[in-house]
Design a protein around this nucleic acid. Structure first.
Length: 116
RNA sequence: UGAGCAGACUGUGUGGCAGCGCGGCUUUAUGCCGUGAGGAAAGUCCGAGCAUCACAGGGCAGGGUAGCUGCUAACGGCAGCCGGAGGCGACUCUAGGGAAAGUGCAACAGAAAAUUACCGCCGCUUUAUGCGGUAAGGAUGAAAAGGCGAGGUAAGAGCUCACCAGCGGGCCGGGAACGGCCCGGCUGUGUAAACCCUACCUGAUGCAACACCGACACGGAUGGAUUCGUUGGCCCGACGGUCCGGACUGGUGGCAGGAGCAGGACGGCGACGUCCUGACGAGAUAGAUUGUCACACUCGACAGAACUCGGCUUAUAGGUCUGGUCACCUU
RNA sequence: GGAGAAGUACUCAAGUUGGUGAAGAGGCGCCCCUGCUAAGGGCGUAGGUCGGGUAACCGGCGCGGGAGUUCGAGUCUCCCCUUCUCCG
């Protein structure tokens, strides 16, 4: 049941990712792409996509870890009720998590503020 | 000292802060403790365990392997040896059964590609480019009917002889592949990673297998002389009476203590085997095993478990150790 | 994770008992037609790379890459690379 609570904060199903891609608003940068979509739930969930373009399995793991470390810091001030998808790019594994955090914070502010 | 050969190992380390998966204890707002990728985890090329179908029956077809002996649970793996090729040498490489069971193919060139006579050479004659003999020479080709030398002959020819290669038989050595010696006859083209033959092996599907729990509820098919399903490329046989197909979503098991690892003794040339002792510490399910900072050095390669083992193959910066070989120098 | 399929010119692609010089179409280049284009018609076409030559041209390599069998490989065998499909 502890696991179930954590699972609520992550996106798992493929259709949830697809909904964010088609209906959500996004912001792109060389290090990271962020999709944001409003859900009707009481919590904020996020998911990470690392395609084969990023590199081999070691590079993809590195990209996921760096993004997850940045997201733990960046999602502190995000209001509830959003689905967020982070997509890694080719330059992501070579970056440090602080650089990712700076880009992520900027993108989240731009995407979340206009709506309020 | 230089060059070169073979084998084995290692493959950043330490600390601070923050964080993740699993297990355990407190007791659950939480906190603490333990532990957490590889030699290839990769490619999925082989062999098994395990699971279901009958713990998978008979046969055909299909597939695989190919010197000998051994090791192994098994193997297309490994070890030793034999034959062949390469290297001065240490050593390395080797799909290495059968073409005399049969069939097919060998383009172009060439007379002819497997019972060969185009030119040439020799003989005879009805002097006709006729008949016969011949495979030494020419020419073609990747390949031309054992090679080369001498004798011999009308010209020639294993026709005869010596040597070499190949085939058959005998003797000796060896466990076998095979090696050595002697004798005989005088020949067979190449291709089996072409079909095939011989010997041996091989049922299929794969953890998304499969078992259990919960929830959802749609459609189809038949019959006793048959039909459907298990069932796969086919036939037979066996089993079932209700079965099959579609489709939805979670959870638990499978799931990690093993043909395993380390050390020692003994047997064996070796692969390996036997015995004793010791330790055991990834197990996720959108997928954890890290982020960041500092210091040190030789500035860190290839690269991430997904049911589990034994191999093979491929990728790999740098470093360490061991044992042979060759050349030069010194004693 | 597991099971398969395919790579031939810029693109789509044919190529079977292994045999000379690797079809065809689109595209491209040149010419005709037109005042000029488009369309149409005709011709050409490894259209890549390396070497030689003033040039015409000649020769080698080249069917994803590398080895092997064979006299000879797009085709047969082995090992890699890339792309795609299926299984919840």
């Amino acid at each position: 049941m502890d696991r179930l609570e954590k699972k609520k904060k992550r996106l798992t199903l493929n259709c949830e990712f697809k909904r964010a891609y088609y209906k959500g608003s996004y912001k792109a940068a060389p290090l990271l792409i962020t999709y944001v979509l409003k859900n009707r739930k009481s919590c904020t969930r996020y998911g990470i996509t690392t395609s084969k373009k990023v590199g081999n399995a070691v590079m993809r793991n590195r990209a996921r870890r760096v993004i997850r470390a940045a997201a733990r810091q960046a999602l502190e001030g995000v209001p509830k009720g959003y689905d967020i998808v982070f997509v890694a790019r080719a330059a992501t594994p070579a970056a440090k998590s602080q650089e990712i955090y700076a880009v992520m914070k900027k993108q989240l502010d731009k995407l979340l503020l206009p709506k309020g």
